[in-house]
């Protein structure tokens, strides 16, 4: 870890879920989810596939609607009217990178600042180059996404999100689509980011990363939060039988 871990500011919640429910057809995929994420907290969400963890973080920036309950993000209630304000505060990185295939790496990073925020092209490009530099992909600025390795694409995707100064970053299984030899470079980038005081919500199966970086680990199963604990307690003394079963299968 680069810096000493910034301590989460427990008095200011960055993201708050209260009694969130969601259904896909008849499947009840989020059941009464309540959770408060503090400002600067690094939260890792894990659980078996289909447990609702990706759906949960997609709700944070309104990519998925939810049926009942409330979500507050950076002081804004998540309503259609406040959605633009929420999305300004939240950055997101996807499992499949989702770089815009028809734009160069640099254009990927400047598209939203220029067209969404009205930042001038010069300033947007300068900022984008800084962020690409920070993620060690500055030399790829003029390439097309299809010419990059998975790890490089994911680092570009992180840079693209950072160009918008998000207060909260969502990571939806950022290493699951990568070849094993590229997982580490992305995890290293995430670890660097974790030292910067940004609020992170990360869905991942990388338990080593969770242990090193997370302030708290959330375990979800069948649409519910089953256990929330600091990493030492979570990995060494899991309480719920489901958690134990999950960890036993993983390790």
């Amino acid at each position: 870890m680069t810096d000493g871990p910034a301590t989460p500011d427990l008095k200011t919640p960055a993201v708050e879920f209260r009694g969130v429910n969601k259904w896909f057809g008849t499947a009840h995929v989020l059941r009464e989810v309540s959770l408060t994420v503090a400002k600067s907290e690094r939260l890792v969400i894990c659980g078996p596939s289909g447990s609702g963890k990706s759906t949960l973080i997609r709700c944070v920036n309104g990519l998925e609607p939810f049926a009942s309950g409330t979500i507050r993000v950076a002081g804004h209630d998540l309503t259609p009217a406040r959605l633009p304000a929420v999305r300004r505060a939240v950055g997101m990185v996807f499992q499949h990178f989702n770089l815009f295939a028809h734009l160069t790496v640099l254009e990927n990073c400047t598209l939203a600042p220029i067209h969404g925020r009205g930042i001038g092209r010069r300033a947007a490009e300068a900022r984008a180059r800084d962020e690409l530099e920070r993620l060690a992909v500055a030399d790829l600025a003029d390439r097309m996404p299809g010419q990059l390795s998975g790890g490089q694409q994911q680092r570009v995707a992180i840079a693209r999100a950072l160009c918008l100064d998000p207060a909260v970053m969502l990571f939806d299984e950022p290493t699951s689509a990568l070849d094993p030899e590229m997982v580490q470079e992305v995890l290293d980038a995430l670890t660097d980011l974790a030292g910067c005081g940004m609020t992170l919500l990360c869905v991942t199966h990388e338990m080593g990363f969770a242990r090193r970086v997370a302030d708290r680990v959330v375990f979800m199963d069948a649409g519910q939060i089953v256990e929330v604990a600091p990493p030492e307690a979570f990995f060494d003394r899991p309480e719920h039988p489901r958690t134990r079963e999950f960890l036993a299968r993983l390790l």
Binding site: F94, N98, H115, G116, L164
Partner: peptide, 20 residues
Amino acid sequence: GQGRAALALGLTRVQALRLV
């Protein structure tokens, strides 16, 4: 995912269509 990424970056639906 292309549209989702555009929305997540704060672009409007019209912008996502037109630009991405």
